[in-house]
Amino acid sequence: MANLVISGVCALRCPYCFAEEHLAALKARAVPLFISPEIFEQRLDFLQRSGIPEARLIGGEPTLHPQFAQLVARAVARGFKVMVFSHGLMPERALAALEALPLQQCTVLVNMNATRYPADTARRDKEHARRAETLRRLGGRALPGFTIYTPDFDLDPLLAAINSTGCQQMIRLGVAQAIFAGHNQYIHPKQYPYIAHKIARFAVKAAQAGVTISFDCGFVPCMFSDADLAVLRRVKADAQWHCSPILDIDIDGRVVHCFPLTGTAQTTLESTADAASLRAALAEQSAPYRMAGIYRDCATCALKASGACAGGCLAMTLRRFQQTPFQVTPPAERSTV
């Protein structure tokens, strides 16, 4: 799996945005805002030599790329499935291009709580209505997603949207993770047990409506009670407990573990590199930190030791570390103090 950054712009202002730090870094490096067709071709070459069958397009907002339709067409022509990570408020030409793709070759993960107006309910309602229209037009190509960034979240409106639009009967849930060096809104691991119970209760309601839930990275099993884990199994939720280098490949060829880890482990996409070698390079950089996890007890947890749980999001783990330097000045040797 590897994500290709094709756009460095986004018009929304999501309070939890993982990419803000990353987009600011792009600007600072004077990287072009959009990937060129030539570089995009090279990225497809990379996917091909890495044996990756899917072109995952991210941003910023990928659909804002002026040549989005051509890039998608090119990926499809070369035999890739296309997955687009979008806020769903896309330009008509992008929507039309995606709508025209065969169902099996296209998935659009629509982030249902992306917004330009975090504090304005009326405008958010308008965004929701527009996004519902995107879901309707994309039909089975659209997979609704939701990022939990505050404990008072409400997933119920998603069920209504799914039922009325004909999109996939699944919700991809993410927990907002703290950007390593940023200031986004996020859920702290000590809040996980509360949101976990809420998710489990929602999973039951969703199952009754024929909708399943699946987890993005960063979840940990210990956030759920045993009873809630049993619920997730019963409703066949796609629950995973992983955090491993996805590979986010930037417009200028920089490769990071993932957006929240911008500013830490990174490498560069060389012309002969494949995904496995990049992943190994990033894993080596972060290996010492993997001894820890998001909780104090992760270091001694059997599930983590067995690899069944990654210990939560590495960006969250890194934020637990301190870096205050100190100096000690021992006196010259003395016999008594």
Partner: peptide
Amino acid sequence: GAAVRSPAHLRWLQDAGQLLVVDEKAR
């Protein structure tokens, strides 16, 4: 009796029962 200091490439955290010091340079 000369002064010593922690290098800037060290980070540390307190875990249950242990203190983990990571040397970023030496990984």
